[in-house]
């Protein structure tokens, strides 16, 4: 019985930790998609974020510098995506995929060039919050590193940002009806640039969690589909920051579970077990989808008519 409890607490705790990259990426994606941009480049942005955080952490030994760099580079990639799809009105799927390919290539390349193999960085410390850490179970669950706390705190902040601020209103309006927003004097292009840059910054942070908060090494392709799942989390969340929290924890937990069930010696082939998150995603997607449609102008470039 005690074993079972420990097991549950352990897997919940590491599930919450593992939900961090999903949460960062999907919070950013919520903002981007609400403004009308489907950022399929998440996987590439996360990879580059992971790698740049890793690199700077090794070079400067400063975690703060590493985090800031991953944010700046993520933001720059968001800007690049923005220029392609907002200014040049390119197909969002094509640009997103190009960024993923580019991200995979450049991280493999620079990693071999600069580090070869076997470099490790120091992991972020796990922090327990005073008072809360006295509470049984909950205290155990909330022993995460700083990035996890930032991600969780970002949920209400992004909620307020999206629903209670003028700029949030503008973001939602350019994603639903850019023409109407434009006629009311909203600068559609500017708002979309802001949104996609936020998306990039968060994706960079989500990647940084993988190298600074989870593995302490960089492996090519280490995001392993997390960017794609973050996009699904965004849909499950119905384009809402609070939903992103629920979806991320669900996937963080399922991801952890697929590893943990193995360690228990349950006789299910790992490969079959690995399909679990995706099957869950499709099923939830089908259930959720009819009830809430995506932002109206998602994937539609805005062309200003004179």
């Amino acid at each position: 019985m005690a074993d079972l409890l420990t097991f549950i607490i352990l897997s919940l705790s590491s599930g919450i930790g593992l939900s961090t990259p999903y949460l960062f990426a999907s919070l950013g994606e919520v903002i981007a998609e609400r403004s009308g941009i489907l950022n399929l480049g998440l996987e590439g942005m996360m990879l580059i974020g992971a790698f740049s955080a890793f690199t700077v952490s090794i070079w400067t030994k400063s975690t703060e510098m590493a985090l800031v760099t991953s944010m700046i580079i993520g933001g720059a990639l968001g800007l690049l995506m923005g220029i392609m799809v907002i200014k040049l009105k390119a197909n969002q799927i094509a640009v997103g995929l190009a960024i993923v390919v580019f991200g995979m290539g450049i991280t493999v390349f620079l990693n071999l060039l600069w580090f070869g193999r076997g470099q490790t960085t120091t992991l972020l410390q796990k922090i327990s919050i005073p008072i809360i850490n006295q509470i049984p179970i909950i205290g155990d669950l909330l022993r995460q590193n700083i990035l996890t706390y930032i991600a969780i705190i970002l949920v209400p902040i992004m909620s307020i940002f999206l629903y209670r601020t003028t700029i949030g209103l503008k973001i939602r309006s350019v994603g639903e009806n850019p023409k109407a927003a434009d006629s009311l004097g909203v600068n559609v292009f500017k708002i979309r640039y802001i949104s996609i840059i936020i998306g990039g910054v968060f994706a960079g942070l989500g990647g940084a969690y993988l190298t600074l908060g989870f593995l302490s090494i960089f492996m090519p392709g280490m995001t392993a589909g997390m960017g794609w799942i973050a996009i699904v989390v965004t849909i499950l969340a119905r384009w809402d920051p609070k939903g992103a929290l629920v979806g991320s924890i669900l996937f963080g937990f399922v991801t952890d579970l697929t590893v943990r069930i193995q360690s228990l010696g349950v006789q299910i082939p790992l490969t079959i077990l690995n399909t679990l998150p995706y099957i869950v995603a499709i099923v939830v997607l089908v259930i959720v989808y009819g009830k809430r449609q995506p932002p109206n102008a998602l994937m539609e470039p805005y062309i200003k008519t004179k």
């Binding site: 390919v101 580019f102 290539g105 493999v108």
Partner: peptide
């Protein structure tokens, strides 16, 4: 030149 160049160039 390390691996990954083709993808990078292509992107």
């Amino acid at each position: 030149i390390p691996d990954g160049v083709a993808e990078m160039l292509f992107g």
